[in-house]
């Protein structure tokens, strides 16, 4: 693993017990994602995209093989170490936004910083900056229920990037958005990737997202069937 390789998987396999048998979601996946990539794991539903993203995000552990993220082997981490990795180096964007409903926009974006025990004044600056990036400064006091789908996803992006993580993992980020909002969101992420050097890894089968990707890793039945760099 070189300094620029952020994510490396070797013969990564994930199986889920179903009844007395196992369902294999990932089969010996070998993968390497470098710094500043804007990569998408694409494929139909059930191909193993989200499973791969969850393992990279230390939310799940492999059954066999190994996955190294920023030099840490996911399968050997305990819960606390995994939580620390997610908190310090990873950002998540979910299909359903997953905003905390009782908090307003500012507090939602501030949440990961609270877990890092960053001092109050610095926190305020970082949250305001993140909200500026996604163009939601004027909605800072709004509750998630008062936001549109596009706005909610932009808050989720702000929350993911506020701590300036090394990697942002986005699971079907545009699935619940219309075309206009999808493009707006994607342009925002492209800008962040270029300006902050954040690595983005998407899980998607949305053509709109795919059109923005610089690298497409195609999964089918848990196996990588294609890995294309887009010029």
């Amino acid at each position: 693993m070189t300094a620029s390789e952020l994510i490396v998987t070797k013969k990564l396999t994930k199986q889920y017990p179903i009844g007395g048998n196992f369902f294999t979601a990932l089969r010996e996946v070998d993968l390497c994602i470098d710094q500043c990539e804007f990569t998408g794991i694409v494929g139909p539903s059930g191909s193993g995209k989200t499973t791969l993203l969850n393992i990279i995000g230390a939310l799940d552990a492999p059954t066999n093989g190994n996955a190294k993220v920023l030099g840490s082997e996911i399968g050997k981490m305990n819960h606390v170490e995994a939580a620390k990795l997610r908190n310090q180096y990873l950002g998540f964007i979910f299909q359903t936004y997953n905003l905390l409903p009782v908090y307003n926009v500012f507090e939602n974006v501030e949440f990961p910083l609270l877990l890092q025990h960053i001092e109050s004044s610095k926190r305020v600056d970082m949250v305001n900056k993140a909200l500026e990036w996604v163009g939601l400064s004027e909605k800072a006091k709004s509750k998630p229920a008062q936001l549109s789908g596009g706005e909610s996803q932009r808050v989720a992006i702000a929350r993911a990037i506020v701590k300036q993580p090394k990697i942002v993992l986005a699971d079907e980020p545009t699935a619940n958005l219309d075309a206009q909002n999808s493009h707006h969101i994607l342009k925002t992420m492209v800008t962040l990737n270029e300006e902050l050097g954040t690595t983005f890894v998407f899980s998607t089968h949305d053509e709109k997202v795919i059109s923005y990707l610089r690298r497409k890793i195609k999964l089918s039945d848990g196996e990588i069937v294609d890995d294309t760099i887009v010029n």
Binding site: G57, L59, H79, V80, A83, K84, R86, N87, Q88, F92, F94, T96, N98, L99, L100, P101, F111, P112, L115, Q116, R159
Partner: peptide
Amino acid sequence: KEMGTMMALGMTRG
């Protein structure tokens, strides 16, 4: 879902 989000954002189970 909120708890899952908190864990994804780096909050420990404890």
